[in-house]
Design a protein around this nucleic acid. Structure first.
Length: 332
DNA sequence: ATGTGAG
DNA sequence: ACTCACATA
C-alpha cells in the first residue's frame, strides 16, 4: 500500500496518444505491419505515462520509444493541430472500408483486406456475398447493428436471472457470475461475460461427464430461447449470441466453464478492468507471485512458479499478495 | 501445424 | 500477455 501510481486517464499528452493509437491501428489493419503498429503503441504508451506536457518533438525524443519520425509528427501536430498523414488516411477509401469491415465480429485485418481486394466496399456489399464468410462472420454480419449497441444494466440483470434459473434446473450446484464491466457496476456494457463453475469440476478430474457440461448448458439455454446463435463452442468456452425475448436486441454472450479451484482467479481476471489487472499483476510480482486467470503461484528464488496457492474467495487473492481489497465497482 | 480472430 | 476455438492445410 505504498505506490499510488495513477498511470493514465486524462494525461497531459492525451492528444498525442490519440493520433499515435490511430496510426498504430492503421498500420495493423491496413498495412498489416505489426512492427510499425508496435512502435506507435509503445510511443503512445510512454507519452501516456509521462507526467508533464510535452511541448516539442525534441523534448519527446528523449523518451524511450520515440525517435526522429515520431518527434517530427509531434512538432507538426503542435504547429498545425493535425497530421497530414492522418488526413490522407481519412480520405483513403480502401483504408476506411477495411476499418469498417473489421468491426464485423469474426473479421480481422487479414479477412477485411481480402474482401476489399474482392471489391467489397460496404456492409451491404458484404451481405450479398455471405458465401465468402465463415459461420462466425455470417453471424457477426447478421447482427452487425445489434452488436454495436451497448447493453443496459437492467437487461443484463434480466438475462442473468434467466441463465441462473435455467442452469440451476440442470444442477443446483452450478455457480454463475457475470463479470466484465457489469460486475464493476457500470450502467451499460458491450457484451455479457458469464463464468460458471461446479464443485465436481476441478482442474484434475477434467474428464468424463465434465467434457459435456458446457455443451449441456448451452443446449438448455438454446432450448429456452435465450441463446440464438453459436459462434464457437469448446469444452471450456462458448461464444455466441443471446436475446431477452423475440424482437429484443441480440447481444454478444460469452460463457466460460472454469474448474472450481480456479474460479476466483478467473472471476478476478474477467472482472477487470484491464488497467486494474495490470497493476494488480505487477503488484503480485513485486510480492513474489505470479497471477493469471487460472491461479496465483509463488515465484521461487529462481523465478520458477511453484504450486498454486489454494484460493477460496476473491479476497484471498488480495490478502495473499498484501493488496488492499477493492470492491468490483472500485476497479474501473 | 499454422494462421486468424476474440477477449 | 495469454488462452481458446476455428479453419485450412
Amino acid at each position: 500500500m505504498s505506490k499510488r501510481k495513477k498511470p493514465s486517464e486524462d494525461n497531459s499528452n492525451h492528444d498525442f496518444c490519440d493520433f499515435l493509437i490511430e496510426l498504430a491501428d492503421y498500420e495493423k489493419n491496413v498495412n498489416r505491419n505489426i512492427h510499425k503498429h508496435n512502435v506507435y503503441r509503445k510511443a503512445a504508451n510512454v507519452l501516456a505515462n509521462h507526467p508533464t506536457r510535452i511541448t516539442s518533438g525534441k523534448e519527446a525524443q528523449k523518451l524511450d520509444g520515440i525517435g526522429k519520425k515520431i518527434a517530427k509528427k509531434i512538432d507538426e501536430f503542435l504547429q498545425t493541430g493535425k497530421l497530414q498523414k492522418l488526413e490522407n488516411i481519412h480520405n483513403d477509401e480502401k483504408a476506411s472500408v477495411i476499418n469498417l469491415l473489421t468491426q464485423v465480429s469474426g473479421i480481422g485485418p487479414a479477412k477485411a483486406r481480402n474482401l476489399v481486394e474482392m471489391d467489397i466496399r460496404s456492409i451491404d456489399d458484404l451481405r450479398k456475398h455471405t458465401d465468402k464468410l465463415t459461420h462466425h462472420q455470417v453471424v457477426g454480419l447478421r447482427y452487425f447493428e445489434d452488436f454495436q449497441k451497448r447493453i443496459p444494466r437492467v437487461e443484463i440483470e434480466e438475462i442473468e436471472k434467466i441463465m441462473k434459473c435455467e442452469v440451476e434446473k440442470l444442477d443446483e450446484d452450478y455457480e454463475i457470475t457475470i463479470c466484465g464491466s457489469y460486475r464493476r457496476g457500470q450502467p451499460e456494457s458491450g457484451d455479457i461475460d458469464a463464468l460458471i463453475t461446479h464443485p465436481h469440476y476441478t482442474s484434475e478430474m477434467c474428464n468424463k461427464q465434465n467434457k459435456d457440461r458446457l455443451k449441456t448448458i448451452v443446449n438448455t439455454l438454446e432450448k429456452c430461447g435465450l441463446i440464438t446463435d453459436v459462434l464457437s463452442l469448446g469444452d471450456t468456452k462458448f461464444m455466441g449470441a443471446c436475446r431477452l425475448n423475440e424482437g429484443a436486441t441480440t447481444r454478444r454472450l460469452d460463457i466460460r466453464l472454469t474448474p472450481c479451484d480456479q474460479y476466483y482467479c478467473c472471476v478476478l481476471y474477467f472482472t477487470g478492468s484491464d488497467i486494474f489487472n495490470k497493476t494488480m499483476r505487477a503488484h503480485a510480482n513485486e510480492k513474489g507471485f505470479t497471477l493469471n486467470e487460472h491461479s496465483l503461484r509463488p515465484l521461487g528464488s529462481t523465478g520458477v512458479p511453484g504450486e498454486p496457492v489454494p484460493i477460496s474467495s476473491e479476497k484471498d487473492i488480495f490478502d495473499c499478495i498484501e493488496y488492499e481489497y477493492r470492491e468490483p465497482q472500485n476497479r474501473n
